[in-house]
Design a protein around this nucleic acid. Sequence first.
RNA 1: GGCCGUGUGCCCGAGUGGACUAAGGGGGCGGAUUGCAAAUCCGCUAUUCGUGGGUUCGAAUCCCACCGCGGCCUCCA
Length: 523
Amino acid sequence: MPMQLYNTLTRKKEPLVPQDPSRITFYTCGPTVYDDAHIGNFRSFLAADLLRRWLESPLCELMTESGETHAGPRVVRHIMNITDVGHMTDDDVADGGGEDKMQAATKRLLEQKKAGASHIGEVDPNDPRQIADFYAERFLEDARALGLKVALEANESEAKRRELMPKATESIDGMRGMIEDLASKGFAYRAGDAVYFDVQKYDRYGELSGNTLDKIRSGAGGRVADEHTAEKHSPADFLLWKADASHLMRWPGPVIGGEAVGEGYPGWHIECSVMARAALGDVIDLHSGGEDNIFPHHECERAQSCCATGNDTFARHWFHGRFLQVEGEKMSKSKGNFFTARDLFAQGHEPAAVRLELIKTHYRTNANFTQQGLKDSARTVTRLRKIVEEGETNPGDPTDTGVLEAFGRAMQDDLNIAEAIGVLGAWRHSIEKPTSGDAEIAKQIDRVLGLLGLAQSESTETEIGEYQDGITPDPEIESLLAKRAEARKNKDFATSDAIRDELAGKGYAIKDVAGGKVEVSRK
RNA sequence: GGCCGUGUGCCCGAGUGGACUAAGGGGGCGGAUUGCAAAUCCGCUAUUCGUGGGUUCGAAUCCCACCGCGGCCUCCA
């Protein structure tokens, strides 16, 4: 059974049929780097990463255009852009008002700097390019820590990074070119300082999101402001270029109808059309993003790309992940349930646990990120690691060969990761003593899950303690551990238990491990 | 208001018409082990699938209505 994958465009599960099944083209809308990416962002990027890893797996079978089955492994050319251009908060505002994201970041960073925050280091909060570069670098670090394959590949060299994780600011010429091309073909027009895409010229506008121009016009959300739209042909027309000499980030504008539109900045959809085409060609196999990207971003991107290339199809298959909630609630800074990946690492959670917690819920349901879940995930990772470590020292055949097939069957069905992990649990249960064959199976499964290669949290050893979760040994803990060891030696268990309780009160869990040492971890 | 998705045990989550007397993980309980814990291992832990109707020989699974939750309807993964 070839792999089935839900396609946002057709609103149903259907076989993924790439143009060339041995080499799949995949574009993912990446982060806007005006702040650290949060775990919701990463859930979406990790869903794309999991899909990519699955497609590359020898276990994955795809349908070809002629209806045959194509067995893996295969190559996935995966591109993830980095948006480092600020965008107007409101592109309807014709008079240059509104606030740019990078400008908003500047404001925030200035405030933080005043308040004494040091994490921004030498960055000049008044320079949007420095801000973007700073956060882009941090994004890449986090992405690598979480095992995002595209970020690992991009790390090989600056050339690779430009190729696989292009920045919008590196593609301004291409954007200008596509805007001019769209205008010359009659799909775009100039109105005052702006160039707009003429949605009425593209009759498939709305197919992806299920919107119609009618509904957009009468949108009860009340967000289609009309007083500024007089210059547009349709209220749904969207910005391709905005001339604005006051904008901090600005570039020479396109030439429309022989006249140069002034210096300014591109609209926020055009970059992906340009970068996807440059890296992957006119028609791509797969395109992913968060569910909020469906409209307007991907709808607009599709319109631009199809009109520019003259093809009916831009992306053959659209893949969108649902949002992440935290402890059952919408994630928000005011609720205090807003986490970046590095927040969690700093709390001592290992990247593999964070990764598993973020990928273990089916991408098309709202996931609930919880502290308990993070603990469960950490345990699952430890167990998987153990199978490999113990198995490698015990030569032998696999205990059960059916597990790969069952795991694969689950993944083939629209990336049913939860069932796949269920299969893994039952498999682990059936193993009494892991063999080298079992270790091989675990490793093959992990090439899809991407957990075992990630950095383990540092443990620091002292004479009596093994400190986990990045805990730094300090004299107070050390002396308590020493006292407890002494008490245990004298069989004074009342004292020894009291010390354990005291440490628990300070937030540390301890356990006695082989060799007479005590493992100290966070409670 | 429109569109899209979703609602399964104490919790997270599989299952999408008959092998469901509903995976897997966590938690809890009991046992082995341990000075006691931790970890590990063994056993137990939903006659029931948001609510109410309907279709069917048969429904968690299909249909309708209602309720709850989430997303989009020109910043947003």
